[in-house]
Amino acid sequence: CHSECLGNCSQPDDPTKCVACRNFYLDGRCVETCPPPYYHFQDWRCVNFSFCQDLHHKCKNSRRQGCHQYVIHNNKCIPECPSGYTMNSSNLLCTPCLGPCPKVCHLLEGEKTIDSVTSAQELRGCTVINGSLIINIRGGNNLAAELEANLGLIEEISGYLKIRRSYALVSLSFFRKLRLIRGETLEIGNYSFYALDNQNLRQLWDWSKHNLTITQGKLFFHYNPKLCLSEIHKMEEVSGTKGRQERNDIALKTNGDQASCENELLKFSYIRTSFDKILLRWEPYWPPDFRDLLGFMLFYKEAPYQNVTEFDGQDACGSNSWTVVDIDPPLRSNDPKSQNHPGWLMRGLKPWTQYAIFVKTLVTFSDERRTYGAKSDIIYVQTDATNPSVPLDPISVSNSSSQIILKWKPPSDPNGNITHYLVFWERQAEDSELFELDYCLKGLKLPSRTWSPPFESEDSQKHNQSEYEDSAGECCSCPKTDSQILKELEESSFRKTFEDYLHNVVFVPRKT
């Protein structure tokens, strides 16, 4: 048989008469490798580009789960590009990614509803959504962080984005990388972005840091009482949809009607710091009717980097990364020049730590249904340095008659930039024990000054392991946590139920 035959053949030295091919099969003959313009397919066939392209389009058009959109890589027609490569849609070739590779997620039936953290986790790592997304989240724990972890990498949506009755959302900033909504599939009414009845939605994105392009379709905003109209108009300008909307697409009466839409800028007039305090004062603000001013709200939190936005980490279910302080308005003076500047002394802060701070007014709604208010920009203030805590785990070892090696770990709280350490030492008198000992005694162990690591005695271990207080009263049991108490109650309830079950099964009433 021919060298490319495997198993047997019907005619000697003829690659077209093989029972099976050793390498690849091409047009009725066995070959060692697939010549151009053919590609290896499933490690035994040679196919042309049209064959591989037909497989790709067949799966793409069917949208069946589990099928493969075949691509070409290293002269092979394979189910998908290997790690580190992405497909070129024009020629199906796998090309190296520039940075992290995109991950295209194809949605069944063309859309997916995100109504819980669990459903959001199914899209973790996706960068391109081939379909439409509907966000409908009523509640949950730590929602802002969970949504950002699972949806934060999405850069492109081919269909539309719909935010509907998501009472738990305060902001859409968890879509931190969303840059493009194509609108290839539109919501009824030709809408590519749809926001309806979101009672706590206050911000779409921080438009000073976020760009969003909507290729096709219109915007729809109705019944978002805490979303200011200025935020919607800003989205029109940034996304390129200005002029597409009709009169009733953006409701003037049901958007922002319960919001404090600040239209003035508060400026800080005085800032002073110490290692654990920050004193702030800002310019006074009074609405047209000074009785509408209820006070100020001061927001602050630790910020290692200057990239904080107002609604980071917030949701309507209680999660809030900001510390909020309510401040009463100052006494009002008739003389504008003698107006008191409101302020606040922030206490209990960490030394040498940068804080993000902003302040906003708290006002009631005027009778004319106009909203007044003022808010400052987010500023960054760093507390002063102070003395560091003591170095940890000092170790001293003498390696000769004239040297001592000293080692330690950095302090747990540096409280500033540590530039150097101060080492103090003092000579001590020799131990009298060394002169009084009889060095001729056998088995004498000389006193040693070398360091030995501390260890816990058996008594201390027994005390720590004991669940009861000892007789001397030195140790006591740790208080039980809520989960331990709940577990004990469940076990007790189970024992009672099981005992009742045994009584009912074992003891049967005697027939009379």
Rank of each mutant, 00 (worst) to 15 (best):
I157M: 09
L153M: 08
I327L: 09
W408M: 01
H106P: 10
Q382L: 08
L161W: 00
T185V: 10
S132R: 04
L196V: 14
T213K: 10
K226M: 04
I154E: 00
L252Y: 12
V363T: 05
D326N: 03
A303R: 09
I232C: 13
S192H: 00
I271K: 14
P329S: 07
A168L: 02
I114L: 08
L229Q: 11
T241E: 06
E156K: 07
G256F: 11
H233N: 02
L196W: 13
Q258N: 02
L161N: 00
S239N: 08
N150C: 07
T185K: 13
F175T: 02
T185C: 09
Y305T: 11
N211F: 04
P411H: 00
V104W: 14
V308R: 07
L161C: 10
W282C: 15
S260Y: 13
S260D: 14
G139N: 06
G313L: 05
L294N: 10
S260G: 06
E122Y: 07
E109R: 15
G217K: 03
I357S: 09
T215L: 04
T241V: 14
L362C: 06
F311A: 06
E237C: 11
W205Q: 02
K360S: 05
L180V: 12
G348K: 02
L204R: 00
V363H: 04
W322N: 03
F193M: 14
A259I: 15
Y355A: 01
E302Q: 15
V397G: 07
I278V: 15
S173G: 09
P284Q: 10
Y194M: 12
A144Q: 12
N307K: 06
K242S: 10
P329A: 14
I129S: 01
Q203V: 06
C126F: 01
I137A: 14
L169A: 14
I137S: 04
I135S: 01
K253Q: 10
S274R: 14
T113F: 07
D289Q: 02
P330G: 07
I163S: 05
L349I: 05
D367Q: 15
K226H: 14
Q121H: 04
T127I: 08
Q339M: 09
L265V: 14
Y285W: 02
T361F: 15
S338T: 14
N190Q: 12
R182H: 15
I405L: 09
K277I: 15
S171F: 14
Q216T: 11
L266C: 05
S208T: 11
L212T: 11
I232F: 11
K226L: 09
Q121F: 09
L362V: 02
D292P: 01
D393T: 11
K162R: 14
M346R: 06
F193G: 01
F358I: 14
L219R: 05
E155Q: 03
G295I: 13
